[in-house]
Amino acid sequence: MQRHLALMLYIAICGLIVFLVKAEWINAYIQIVIMFIGINIMLSSSLNLVNGYMGEFSCGHAGFMAVGAYVTSILNMWFFTKGNLFGDALFSPSLSVILFPVTLLIGGACAALIGLLVAIPSFKTRGDYLAIITLAVNYIIKSAIENIQTIGGARGFMGMRKVVNAMSDTVPLPWLMIWILVFTGLTVVVLHRFVSSTFGKGVVAVRDDEIAAEIMSVNTQRMKLIAFMLSSGLAGIAGGLFAHVLGYINPGSFTIMKSTEIMVMVYLGGMGSLSGSVMSAILFTVLMEFLRPLQLFKWVLIPLLLIILMMFRPEGIMGHRELPDMFPKLRRLFPSREV
């Protein structure tokens, strides 16, 4: 039973949030902040797999997010709404409750596929090349979407609100919030299981010493592809959720600025630390909201914060450690290291 303590705690918190939303005890603004925290947790922890655990430098995470966002949005519009792009709705809008997570997964799979296309040529070499390639891919994806007029081009793509409304009309629950909480939990669980398994630690072996990894029977090419696909796939799912929170997406939401924002979260929380990524995503999102009155000046303050952090704690807040390493009492909550 103790093994599931952390999980049950999470479910309890989620239950509380859903209850509070349903009872309308927290307003729409707080709800959106909570949803963004969830999405940012997914983004930062998935990027940490590549930049932290694997020690590569990917800086086009927003590109994969865009793929997921567009694929999921288009599918949902096609399936459940009338008079858009594809004419009539393919399924009854009431089915959206069941099919929405499926479309998210398809969006994630498409993003993972793009991730694979990027990874195959770029992992032949190491280090800076991946940074340059992912940067380029980010631009390619953005420009490609801008030039496809059927999905709105640079004007963007909207109408996802209808899908969200269709879900709550069918079963009156805050569905979007529920799916965000579910997928955030899943992302963290999947990543935690991956990096704490002997299989996934192959990725860390690649970071520590790639030559030793290859000679000690780790299929380094395959490990890198798997990690990169997992990372981009999860970013795609986060993108799909992101699109539905906003109800409107345009290519401008997925620029290098967004990628940088995700990277700031990863480096703030610490390389190779899942709990660091989760904490920093929460911290960062909340901080951004508190700094809103400063308007543009927050973009002076936040990079400054990063510079100060890099000077005094270059490995990030948690740097290669997890919460239980720092507070041994928490080990009772996360005992999964010993199988």
């Binding site: 991956f194 002997t198 630690k201 860390v204 990894a213």
Partner: peptide, 26 residues
């Protein structure tokens, strides 16, 4: 050696040729 991991983890990872499970199982 893979210095960010313990001796035991080092000796586990080197068994990657015979894992017996894959990503999905993980």
């Amino acid at each position: 050696m893979w210095n960010s991991m313990t001796v035991l983890e080092n000796l586990c990872i080197s068994q990657h040729f015979d894992m017996g499970y894959g990503l999905l199982d993980t």
